[in-house]
Amino acid sequence: MMLLLNALYNNVFYFASVVLFVIGFYTMLVRSNLIKKLIGLNIMETGVFLLFVSLGYVEGGMPPIVDHANDVVYVNPLPTALILTGIVVAVSVTAFSLALCVKLYRYYGTLDADEIMQLRSAPK
């Protein structure tokens, strides 16, 4: 038990991001409301971003601004820079999907995936 707790403590970012990923995944698959699906998608991506950013963190590390001192430990700036790109990508994907949701609402008058399925199969 102690061993498990210790492992959990040492890999807290890892566990947090996996938990976020699974929460998002679950929301996306189970909820029938399209907006909730998209929120789930965002939670999922946030989980991945958290994992990525935490990879760059170094215990006691300084911001990576070089000032010619030799014995300084720096954090790894690369993952942070990558995730900046990742966030931009996630925002554009979400914006595009929300635009599609608006159009769907105009066509069907509902945002519930199950109701849309019923409306599609009913008239014919």
């Binding site: 990923f21 998002g24 995944f25 996306m28 699906k37 998209l38 998608l41 999922m44 991506e45 989980g47 991945v48 994992l51 990525f52 990742g86 994907v93 595009f96 999907s97 599609l100």
Partner: peptide, 13 residues
């Protein structure tokens, strides 16, 4: 879009 994002999120993880 939703399924494809699911796929890319998995690939990013």
């Amino acid at each position: 879009m939703i399924l494809s994002c699911l796929g890319t999120a998995g690939i990013l993880l």
